[in-house]
């Protein structure tokens, strides 16, 4: 043990904005990995119902949406696709986004016992919530592919680009998740607001309707919404259409801005977590 080799930890009050300290987060990457793995493992091990649920939830949502919006409200898909497939293809990124935001938004409160007992970069908690959603997303994606086979819709090579919109969705989910999780610690009614907000948000995203079914004057809402880009890009990948690059780039840009500002806000209120939780 030489004197120089020992790390020195300084403890002092901080105020205002703080640096992100990415190096430290990198040092704790194994914790991120293991917390994500824990969430996945627990969800899939707990009950058989848990596994069924992962499949049933998007399927039932799709069936209800198809009945409601297609049969009753007479919204039809573009590109001559079966409506159920059209909805399902959008539900994959949307559900990943919304469960990611909900999960990470509530994650700090759910991990209060950890936060009050151990030190680690707190950002790992909302991050692992988003990452754990990847498995559910993969399952839903599998369902979509099964539906392709069922409807005999030809698969396209552009399917290989699918990881791109997924990454952008993850960035968006993590960015908003950071904001909500930190706000949630400070303001306890955020918890109530999140599900409501996400429900509104889904209708502001072309999930259940194609863009062209929307009156022109509402288009700006859909285009301001950063989730539109990933949903469109995701559908385009599946259908082998040219990707809406501009919209996807816009989504990515918004995602990065929200993530960075969220991270700074998170760091700012992080010091309160252990005292308030």
């Amino acid at each position: 043990m030489t004197e120089q080799s020992l790390p020195v930890i300084e403890i002092a009050p901080t105020s205002g904005w703080r640096a992100l300290d990415l190096r430290e987060i990198w040092q704790y990457r194994e914790l991120l990995q293991i917390l994500t793995w824990r969430d996945i493992k627990v969800r899939y091990r707990q009950t058989l119902l848990g596994v069924i649920w992962v499949v049933a939830q998007p399927l039932l949502t799709m069936i209800i949406f198809t009945l409601l919006f297609n049969r009753v409200a007479k919204i039809s898909a573009d590109h001559g696709l079966p409506y159920s497939l059209f909805v399902m293809a959008a539900l994959v990124p949307w559900t990943f986004f919304s469960t990611g935001v909900t999960g990470s938004g509530n994650s700090l409160i759910g991990s209060a016992h950890l936060i009050s007992k151990v030190y680690f970069p707190r950002m790992i908690i909302p991050a692992s919530s988003v990452l754990a959603g990847l498995v559910d997303m993969a399952v839903t994606l599998g369902l979509v592919l099964a539906m392709y086979v069922w409807y005999a819709v030809p698969l396209s090579w552009s399917l290989l680009i699918v990881p791109l919109p997924i990454v952008v969705t993850a960035v968006l989910a993590f960015g908003f998740g950071l904001w909500f999780s930190a706000l949630n610690v400070e303001y306890r009614d955020v918890r109530v607001v999140i599900p409501f907000l996400l429900q509104m948000w889904m209708y502001a995203t072309p999930v259940v309707y194609p863009l062209k079914a929307l009156p022109q004057k509402f288009h700006w809402i859909v285009f301001v919404n950063p989730v539109t880009g990933v949903v469109d890009a995701f559908r385009a990948c599946l259908l082998g259409e040219p990707l809406p690059w501009a919209r996807l780039a816009y989504s990515a840009a918004v995602g990065i801005v929200v993530m960075i500002t969220g991270a700074f806000y998170f760091r700012r209120v992080e010091r309160l977590f252990a005292d308030v939780l």
Binding site: L6, V8, I11, A12, P13, S116, Y119, R271, A274
Partner: peptide, 12 residues
């Protein structure tokens, strides 16, 4: 786990 309000500490 929590920050001090004043003062500082150094751990080697």
């Amino acid at each position: 786990i929590t920050e001090p309000t004043r003062g500082h500490a150094r751990l080697h």
